[in-house]
Computed example of a mutant assay.
Amino acid sequence: MAKGILLVESRPSSSERETEFNEWYESVHMPEVLALDGFVSARRFRPVRAGEPYVTVYEIDADDVTVAAKGVFAAAQSGAFRMSDSMQFDPPPAMRILELAAEQ
């Protein structure tokens, strides 16, 4: 079983909608992602400097980390996620898939 993470950098669509963005992200979006096969936990970090993105780290345990992460893209494209316009989409959230290389 491979271990990895999906790292997502996202921002609210405006400073006026930041509270709405955070409520949606934590109450709706994170649970939707965690319902996908292979996703076992999530942690979300807020920026300490103005203008920087929020960062969410989703932990993945799956036979293939990239296949599990592709489930997020498929769900977003198919409309399975309840997306919110309180999240900035231009530019879109930055996402990286990383596989565990070493653990101590």
Rank of each mutant, 00 (worst) to 15 (best):
P91W: 06
V72Y: 10
R44L: 14
G4K: 07
A80E: 11
A74L: 12
S78C: 04
R96E: 13
A68D: 03
F73N: 05
Q88E: 15
E52Y: 11
K70D: 15
V55Y: 00
G71N: 04
Y25A: 08
F21N: 02
E103Q: 15
A2W: 02
R46G: 14
E103F: 02
R96F: 08
P91L: 07
E16V: 01
S10F: 04
F21W: 03
D90G: 07
S78Q: 08
H29C: 03
W24H: 08
P47A: 13
M87E: 14
A94F: 08
P12Y: 08
M30E: 06
A42M: 09
E16I: 00
V40S: 04
S78M: 09
M83A: 13
A94M: 11
S84H: 05
A76W: 03
S13Q: 07
S84M: 10
S10D: 09
E32I: 06
I5N: 10
M30V: 15
G71P: 02
V57P: 00
N22Y: 05
P91T: 03
K70Y: 09
K70W: 04
F73H: 10
M95F: 06
L36K: 01
A35Y: 05
D90F: 11
D64V: 11
P12D: 09
S13N: 12
D64G: 01
A94S: 11
K3P: 00
M87T: 05
L100S: 12
F39E: 04
P91Q: 08
